[in-house]
């Protein structure tokens, strides 16, 4: 089987996607019942005081990180499946390219101070962080479906 990797755009016009990467997993509190579509995760801030520093505030937590240019770009591929007369066909189409990510590699700091103690309860929905114990990458092999 041969799957062609197509693209409708050229390298210059290819639209750029972005990645915000942080340690562990962001989860909504167990009490949150609704759908998470459209839900705000947090606020990304490009710091004013020191160039190149970004903060990401999620619920009561603040992450500090930086903008990283990827050594090798990541291509965003979309798997297209359609039925031809002869049978099923698959194609991969390049839909975007990722050259930079905002990386938060530190653990979150709790945001607690005397002044805003009261307002904390107003922050809904609440998020918590689950920091995975193991940061080793897992490598496995892909097959064509």
């Amino acid at each position: 089987m041969e799957i062609r990797v197509k693209c409708r755009c050229g390298e210059e016009e290819c639209s750029e996607w972005a990645i915000v990467e942080l340690q562990g997993v962001v989860e909504t509190q167990a009490s949150f019942q609704g759908s998470i579509q459209n839900l705000e995760i947090g606020r990304l801030c490009h710091s004013d005081s020191s160039q190149g520093t970004y903060t990401f505030t999620v619920g009561y937590h603040e992450l500090v990180g930086s903008k990283v240019t990827l050594k090798k770009p990541l291509l965003v591929l979309k798997k297209l499946q359609f039925d031809e007369v002869s049978g099923k066909a698959t194609e991969l189409e390049v839909v975007g390219i990722i050259r930079t990510k905002i990386l938060f590699k530190t653990r979150p700091k709790p945001l607690i101070s005397g002044n805003n103690n009261l307002s904390l309860n107003k922050l809904k929905p609440l998020y918590c962080f689950i920091i995975s114990a193991c940061f080793n990458n897992v490598v496995s092999v892909c097959t064509i479906e």
């Binding site: 990645i19 915000v20 990467e21 942080l22 340690q23 562990g24 997993v25 962001v26 995760i41 990510k101 995975s132 193991c134 940061f135 080793n136 990458n137 897992v138 490598v139 496995s140 092999v141 892909c142």
Partner: peptide
Amino acid sequence: FVGNSNSMF
């Protein structure tokens, strides 16, 4: 396939 335990949004 290289898995990543970080969250990549």
